[in-house]
Write a protein that binds this DNA or RNA. Structure first.
Length: 491
RNA sequence: GUCCCCAUCGUCUAGUCCGGCCCAGGACUCCACCCUUUCAAGGUGGCGACACGGGUUCGAAUCCCGUUGGGGACACCA
């Protein structure tokens, strides 16, 4: 084998880290880990106009949240400009590139005119016809020039690790600019120069770079270098089969963090988008993913981002987590809602963990967990009743009397535990000659404000006697006013 | 317009390289039932696909050609 595997993820900080980029990063990372290689992070910040320090930070933050720490870097492409320029000049010296004195504005107009006419357009190589002497003379005169690669008439072929044998005739490839007339290097040159300098062995990137590949291979060859191996990943599409964009909802990985998804779940989900192990495994640990990952298992067709499945997977991770770790993860969410209390970190740690264990199988995200756990976290007795649930459960013969009896029994109950509460409620129901459900549903509504949720007795235990009684009092008040007005409407 | 890529349930996919084990398997979603104080979770079952047309072959989801459909790229952006 010819040396160790070295791969890189090379985002340009012209936007946040979106799920497509994250997936590319994950595949690179997985490939490196699988082969015991090196994962390099290179920030392609050569477009000063569109790049920003904040976006660099956002990308770094997104990667670190996903646990994608680079073995080398982050490197900044802009720092390598001198080498890029030197490489371009070397190409000029070796006659693989030539000076182009054409006016960029003029070329742009020609291109636009061709586009309006509905035809393609490539640079007509006017300056390639210039003699060496003429070119040197104009340059010496100080005339501005760009440096263009002289694209030979040939067929560029490579063995793509995802697509298999791939070949493109250079007939449609124009003599691309390597150096702009202001002396700055362009993308294709910089990428090749850096990948070469960083001794990258495998370029794993999105399908949108497929058409850049022959251009870059041409640059490698002109530089007298051996190109790396290439692997092009299918793109991730939105529900409408178009390229994923903001219109499709959350596309930044940090948005998923902020919506309450676990990094391991997103990582797992993204790893399975466009790749699968050769079996039916879905929920896989990082170690399992590393062991199973293989570029040969990458699909060739684009995949649609399915939020429902992510929700399911995240739910699986939530259910697999220990209540203690969930309780710890819940803190920032509770803080954001103003529901955090210091005692949750101390004396009531166990209580929080128990609440988390009740919410665990019922929520897909942390955000949902906090929303569903309102009855536990909210100190007040003023919970709003869900209208539909109230209409359904706050009715029937002498409901106030039943609740009154239940409240009295609860007030003097010795052991405030789920099992004891259940025994107590069932006894009251029997004494009053009604089915337990006649008490259970109104009680749940009174204590939680809704009709769905964890078992009532566990709920009551954790809500505590004080709040339970206060909330039942409020319910009684509601029932009394209803009776007073004849037929009041709940809610 | 030109070039390139892709094509299995609504979605993610297994199977395609090395045709038969596939009247196509798993998962998400949806539906039903079970469990059950509700909602989940869990269990059981169901709906649901080889884009189309030609070949090659004893035999094709798998190989070849074409059509259609979808996507991407064509900058002195990255």
């Amino acid at each position: 084998m010819s040396g160790d595997v070295r791969v890189r993820f090379a985002p340009s900080p012209t936007g946040f880290l979106h799920v497509g980029g994250a997936r590319t990063a994950i595949f690179n990372w997985l490939f490196a880990r699988h082969h015991g290689g090196v994962f390099i992070l290179r920030i392609e910040d050569t477009d000063a106009e569109r790049s920003s320090r904040e976006l660099v930070e956002a990308i770094l933050e997104g990667m670190s949240w996903l646990g994608l720490s680079p073995d080398e870097g982050p490197f900044f492409q802009s720092a390598n400009r001198d080498r890029h320029v030197a490489d371009a000049l070397a190409l000029l010296g070796s006659r693989n590139a030539y000076r182009c004195f054409c006016d960029p504005e003029q070329l742009r107009r020609e291109r636009e005119a061709a586009e309006r006419a509905g035809t393609g357009w490539v640079y007509p190589r006017r300056c390639l016809a210039l003699s060496r002497e003429e070119s040197d003379r104009r340059a010496a005169e100080g005339k501005p020039f760009a440096v263009r690669l002289h694209v030979p008439e040939t067929t560029v072929a490579w063995e793509d690790l995802v697509h298999g044998p791939t070949a493109v005739h250079t007939g449609q490839i124009e003599d691309l600019v390597l150096l702009r007339s202001d002396g700055t290097p362009t993308y294709n040159l910089s990428v090749v120069s850096d990948d070469l300098a960083m001794r990258v062995t495998h370029v794993i990137r999105g399908d949108d770079h497929l058409s850049n590949t022959p251009k870059q291979i041409l640059i490698y060859r002109a530089l007298g270098a051996e190109p790396p191996r290439f692997a092009h990943l299918p793109l991730i599409l939105g529900q409408d089969r178009r390229r994923l964009s903001k219109r499709h909802g959350a596309v930044s990985v940090l948005e998923y963090r902020d919506q309450g998804y676990l990094p391991d779940a997103l990582f797992n989900f993204l790893a399975l988008l466009g790749w699968s192990p050769n079996d039916d495994r879905e929920k896989m640990t990082r170690q399992e993913l590393i062991e199973a990952f293989d570029l040969a298992g990458v699909n060739r067709s684009p995949a649609i981002f399915d939020l429902k499945k992510l929700d399911w997977l995240n739910g699986q991770y939530l259910m697999a987590a220990t209540p203690e770790s969930l309780a710890a993860d819940l803190r920032p969410w509770l803080e954001a809602e103003g529901l955090w209390r210091e005692e949750y970190a101390e004396g009531r740690r166990g209580w929080l963990a128990r609440v988390a264990s009740l919410l665990q199988p019922r929520a897909k995200t942390f955000r949902e967990m906090v929303a569903r756990g309102r009855a536990f976290f909210d100190p007040s007795e003023e919970l709003a009743y869900e209208a539909e649930a109230a209409a359904k459960h706050l009715q029937g013969e002498d409901l106030a009397g039943h609740i009154e009896a239940l409240r009295a029994a609860f007030e003097t109950l010795g052991d405030w535990s789920a099992s004891s509460l259940e025994t107590c409620l069932r006894a009251v129901a029997e004494r009053r000659g009604v089915a337990p459900a006649r008490l259970i549903h109104p009680t749940r509504l009174g204590v939680t404000g809704g009709s769905a949720g964890p078992g009532l007795f566990e709920t009551l235990e954790l809500v505590g006697r004080q709040r339970t009684l206060a909330r039942l009092d409020r319910l009684l008040g509601r029932l009394a006013s209803r009776t007073a007005t004849g037929r009041g409407r709940p809610g």
